[in-house]
Design a binder for these strands. Structure first.
Lengths: 234, 234
DNA sequence: ATCAGATATTGAACGCCGTGTAGTTTCTAT
DNA sequence: ATAGAAACTACACGGCGTTCAATATCTGAT
């Protein structure tokens, strides 16, 4: 882990690696996840497809890297939007998070499909990849937002959860950041995540737009209903 | 439209067409949407890939037919589950619809992806295909369920909609079946649709299971929260 | 019974794709 | 200057959707 400046070779390698990803992102935006073809990338870079294998062992590795980048970009955006509002305005923070989630998806429909849909033919995500990690980060962030609404009104006896009901990484993250929160808060956060995901996914995949003219408005109403049901309204 | 018995040729043609779809569905279930390959289908049927073009002009046409079948199967199931409860129990009807939606998705994950996700490489749904039609049917059904909760408590001034805000076919369907319902009910139905879709989509695509052990329980809680917020609880 | 025409099917070809594997060039570090 | 590593080319393989001329099969009328 010495932090010496990279040799020229290493620098070129990093540049090329970055360029591959950049070109792949352009192709992704232009033609969707399936347009990420090694031959197409190589063609744009005036290279041979085989040469790319010096940089990524396989196509799936490249896809994995792209997915990680996209997921990170999404989480960064939602958290930045959230943190633009003070901790004293939990409703605004949750609304901002949700709106950022949708606007990112609308801005990067191909990226959304890459992260949340079938990425590409035959691709299977690696075991402990970066995607579940980013998902945990997103969920932990949401849990923080939901935490502001705790304890929740209208809770029933069915809302008893155990930490074992969730991914250990996620549970650890939440327990560290919000020590006083019960595991049921994580369940609520996951449900909130799903609630936001639903309309956005339908919209990105074109199912909503064929039924309603203004998906953004529906989404806004849904978010407002959400904060209301959490008792976060001012 | 004479209803004579089909000639032997026509019968064979129908049989072959059906067999193609059947084999395609098997491949779909076995290997996901991308496994629907004309060559693979032909191989299983001991045919040539080219011969399939006598039955479907292109691969996309076959995918479209499969999508229509799947969507129909989904809507049939949800409506049957709903109608297993009397009109006097709107909460039970809505819960049944939602649970049927999820159980169908869990039973046919590949079908769910086919209908709601990226179906397959390069495939684009036809303009006025059967998918929007089935979606309208599903939404109209949901609107009927939501209608039982009308007029909604907690409605804000932002809930004013016009019939022009929705797809004409959907609007016509709803106006015919529920003449007394305002267009805002359709907006609510679409939101309910999205709310159900969210957790199910996350689960089918593997994002939920990596975070929580029991997605079904989360979904159940979400449905209960939904009926509660609609004021449908007994 | 025969045979023209419709229908169904084949097999080869084209151009894509991802994945590998030599063999060769280019550059870096010494 | 040169050994060795890194990067790249060229090519092969199998799979894919699609097209098309040629062929096999069946049908209906003669």
């Amino acid at each position: 882990m010495t932090n010496t400046t990279p040799t020229r070779r290493e620098q070129l390698r990093l540049d090329t690696t970055a360029e591959i990803k950049r070109v792949a992102l352009v192709l992704l935006a232009e033609g969707g996840p399936d347009a990420i073809a090694l031959r197409a990338i190589a063609r744009r870079m005036r290279m041979t497809a085989g040469a790319l294998y010096s940089y990524y062992a396989t196509r799936d590795d490249l896809i994995t890297a792209l997915t990680r980048d996209m997921y990170t970009s999404l989480v960064d955006r939602t958290e930045a939007a959230r943190d633009a509002h003070p901790a004293g305005a939990p409703a605004a923070r949750l609304l901002a998070w949700g709106e950022a989630f949708r606007s990112w998806a609308v801005d990067h429909p191909a990226g959304f499909r890459l992260v949340y849909g079938d990425p590409v033919r035959g691709y299977r995500a690696p075991e402990g990849g970066a995607a579940p990690e980013a998902a945990s980060r997103a969920c932990a962030g949401l849990t923080g937002l939901v935490a502001a609404a705790w304890p929740l009104p209208n809770r029933g006896p069915e809302d008893d959860y155990d930490w074992d009901d969730f991914d250990p990484g996620l549970a650890a993250l939440v327990k560290e950041k919000f020590p006083n929160l019960p595991p049921a808060a994580v369940a609520l956060a996951l449900r909130v995540w799903g609630r936001m995901h639903g309309l956005v996914a339908l919209e990105v995949y074109g199912h909503l737009r064929s039924q309603a003219k203004d998906p953004a408005r529906l989404y806004r109403a849904e978010l407002r209903d959400l904060t209301r049901s959490l008792g976060l309204d001012t």
